[in-house]
């Protein structure tokens, strides 16, 4: 099959202090199937070019949000991007079928440990549950939603030397998205796709 084109929408408002995403960003940029957009670099004043963003969406088969989880959601500019770019008549509504059939995946880093994202943990919900707004957004846009890719306990990942493995898993994710079969993921109700990518990164797996 032909390779899928991946649009990586990267949003980090403080890249100079980033430990995880600053590692993933170059990996995404180096991948042959991706187009990477650093949203905070392109729109530091929040004046998003809607037409250009919609054109980009049309030119790709997979849409990935790459971001640090802020208050169980995306950073503000990425939310602004959703509010402006996913227009009625373009992304949804009776005429809005521009995104139909495309894949959507969220790749994020979270401060809390994996076990905190659980009904028993202090976050009380799984990451997948917390990202339901994105899931339903994709659904309403007739997109195929994939479980999120995540790094937990992100503030200690660098010190504990988990970064290299995470980066490797991320590249594996990009490979899978560009040319692997996505049918299993699409049907999966798993909390994350991490399990099927990185057997070594035990911390990334949310224990049940």
């Amino acid at each position: 099959m032909t390779q899928r084109r991946i649009l990586v929408l990267f949003a980090h408002p403080s890249l100079e202090r980033s430990e995880i995403n600053s590692e993933l960003l170059p990996a995404a940029q180096a991948h042959p199937s991706t187009t990477v957009v650093d949203l905070y670099a392109e729109y530091p004043d929040y004046r998003i070019d809607i037409d250009r963003e919609q054109r980009r969406l049309c030119e790709h088969d997979v849409v990935m949000f790459l971001f640090p989880l802020f208050w169980y959601s995306t950073p503000a500019l990425l939310k602004e991007w959703q509010d402006l770019v996913l227009e009625h008549g373009f992304a949804y509504g009776s005429e809005g079928r521009a995104l139909a059939g495309k894949y959507f995946i969220a790749a994020c880093s979270a401060g809390g440990a994996g076990y905190a994202y659980d009904a028993e943990g202090y976050n009380r919900f799984t990451l997948r549950e917390l990202l339901r707004p994105l899931e339903q957004t994709a659904n309403l846009c007739h997109m195929r939603y994939l479980p999120p890719f995540a790094l937990f306990s992100s503030r200690t990942a660098l010190k504990e030397g988990r970064l290299a493995a995470h980066r490797e898993a991320f590249v594996g994710l990009l490979d899978q998205l560009s040319q692997g079969s996505l049918e299993d993921w699409e049907r999966s109700e798993a909390c994350t796709v991490n399990d099927s990518l990185t057997p070594g990164d035990s911390k990334g797996v949310a224990p049940s």
């Binding site: 980090h12 430990e19 802020f70 950073p75 905190a116």
Partner: peptide
Amino acid sequence: DGHDRGERGWTPPPPHYTDSLKD
């Protein structure tokens, strides 16, 4: 700890901030 005075936005919390959240 990585916080500065002029630019308060989007600085990550301290590395072990989750310790105090657990209960």
